[in-house]
Amino acid sequence: MRAYALRRVILAAPTLLGVTIILFALVRMLPGDAVQQILGEYPGYASDEDALRKELGLDKPIPQQYLSWVGHVVRLDLGESLQTKRPIVDELRMRAPVTFELGILAIFLGLCISIPIGVLSALKQDSLADYAARTLSVGMLAIPGFWLATLVITLPSIWWQWTPSPTYTRFTEDPVANLGHMFLPALILATALSGTLMRVTRTEMINVMRQDYIRTARAKGLSNYVVLIRHSLRNAFIPVITVIGLQVPVIIGGSVILENIFTIPGTGRYLLEAISKRDYPVIQGINLLLALVVIFTNIAVDLSYSIIDPRIRYSR
C-alpha cells in the first residue's frame, strides 16, 4: 500500500510534465495571439508587433520559451501578467485559497445533502419517498448554476429589496462574514454536485445491497444498521469517492461562473479574464496550479479505493 502510494506520487511527475507541455501548446494554439490582441485592443502599446513580441519574450523559438518557462516554474516563479504586470504567484497566493474554500464548502454541503437522501432512496426503493428524492435530485441537476445564482440574487432584490452583501471579506479578517458571503455560491455549487452524488449513492446502494454477500450478512442475522454501515455504505462509497474526485475539476469550472456572479475574488475570475485577453502566463499559471490540485486529488481517490474495499489491491 505504502509502496503503491509512493509509486503513485512519483508517477505524478510525468503527468505534471505532460500537463505543462499540453498547457504550453494549447495556449499557443489559441487563434489571435496576445501580441495581435494587445495591439488590436490597445494600439500604441508598442511600436509594432515585433517590438512587442520581443518585450514579452515571445520572439524566441517555442521550445526555448517552454524551457525558460519551466525553469522559472520550478523556482516558483510563474512570471508576470501581460496585462496587469503583477507577479502571478502573488496573485494566486491571494486567490487560490478563496477558490479552494468555495470548493471544499461545496463538497461538504454536497455530501451533507446527498448521502442521507441517497441512502434513504435506496432503502425505500420505488416508494413515494424514493420518487420524491429522485425527482429532487434530478431537479437539482437540471437547473444551470448561473441561472439559480441569478434568481437567488435578483428575486430577493425585487421582492424585499435585499441582496446578499456584494463585498467580499477575507476569512482571516472576519470568518463569519466570509462564510456568510461564501454560503450561497457554495450551496449552488453543491446543488448540482449533490444531484449527481445522490444518484450515484442510490444506484450503488441498491447494487451493493442486492449482492449475495449482503444477503448473506443479513442471513447471518446482522442488524440492518450494521449491514448498512459496515457493508453496503462502505462499498457504495467507492463510486461516490470516484465521482467526487471527478467533480473537482467540474467544481472548479463551476466556480468560474459563481465567482463572477457572487463577486468572489478567486482563480476562476482571474482565469476567465486571462483567457479573453490571451494573457498566456496567467492562463498557464492558474492551470498549472489547478492541475496540481486535481492530480493529488486523483491520487487520493485511487488510494482510497483500497482502503475502503480491500478486494481492490494494487500490488502485483
Binding site: 441569478t150 440574487i153 435578483t154 430577493p156 432584490s157 425585487i158 429589496q161 435585499w162 441582496t163 452583501s165 456584494p166 463585498t167 463572477n260 456572479i261 457572487f262 463577486t263 475574488p265 475570475r269
Partner: peptide, 21 residues
C-alpha cells in the same frame, strides 16, 4: 469610496435595487 468589482450585470443591478450600491 468603495468600488466593488462586480463582473455580472444582473448582480450589479440587483445591488443597486437593494440599495447596497
Amino acid at each position: 469610496a468603495t468600488w466593488i468589482i462586480i463582473a455580472d450585470t444582473a448582480t450589479a443591478t440587483a445591488n443597486l435595487r437593494s440599495g447596497k450600491l
